[in-house]
Amino acid sequence: MTLELELQTLWTALVLYVLAGVAAIFGVALQRKPERTVLALLVFGLVLHTASISLRWDRLGHGPYITMYEILLSNVWSLLAIYVLAYWRIPAIRATAAVVMPILFVMMGWLLMTSPYEGHLPATYHTVWLFIHIGFGKLFLGSVLVAVGISGIILLRGSRYGGERFVSLPDNSRLDELSFRFMAMGIIFETLMLIVGAIWAQDAWGRYWAWDPLETWSFLTWLCLAFALHARVAYKVTPQVGALMVLAVFALAFLTFFGVPFISTSPHKGAV
């Protein structure tokens, strides 16, 4: 199997995602509900995206977690998979696709600009903990992404344009409740990610925690998430402030997942 086939499959998937996103945005702007079309396009995109990842996995003999290209490739996939699940199961918040898809477009654009050539698999990556660690990380980021979509609606409603476009959605206090349920799932998954990461680090490098850049930033994300959850029980936080806290957590998490490996070129650089 060649790299060409892998890339062609991926590009087709990306085109389907873009069409889905555009349909979702136009749906909001024109107050239509092209929900079935959006769902179908996203699911087809995911099928092709899965095929592209499988081809690569088979060709290289290891999963997509080494190079920046692979990290983006697999995270766009997992974020979409989780989002599509939420989109399908919670019809009341389908308008969030108009917020979520542009965020994913940025990641897709970035993905297209990174080199798809293979990297070297470090010896410390031959462990089942790696899969569990990455899996929880993806569940965490996916949960927060759904909360970001909902928060986007709460914030957009602040403007007259947004207020008119999102009238049919549940009121802000309900959206806020739902978004924080996703944040609650997020903290569970992030805690699990940190625990498993520490087990792996102890086995691989002889220390469970050493404040390397990724460890530091992921812990700051965890603290920020704890802060947001507590702020909501300590004060009567408005849905708008709650939404801003969700965005802050996502921004930190985004930086941790894609900024830190980007600066240091490989995950846990220096420790592998």
Binding site: S173, D176, E177, R232, V233, A234, K236
Partner: peptide, 10 residues
Amino acid sequence: MTPRSGPGIE
């Protein structure tokens, strides 16, 4: 104000 579940902070 966000309607909160459970008892109030007071």
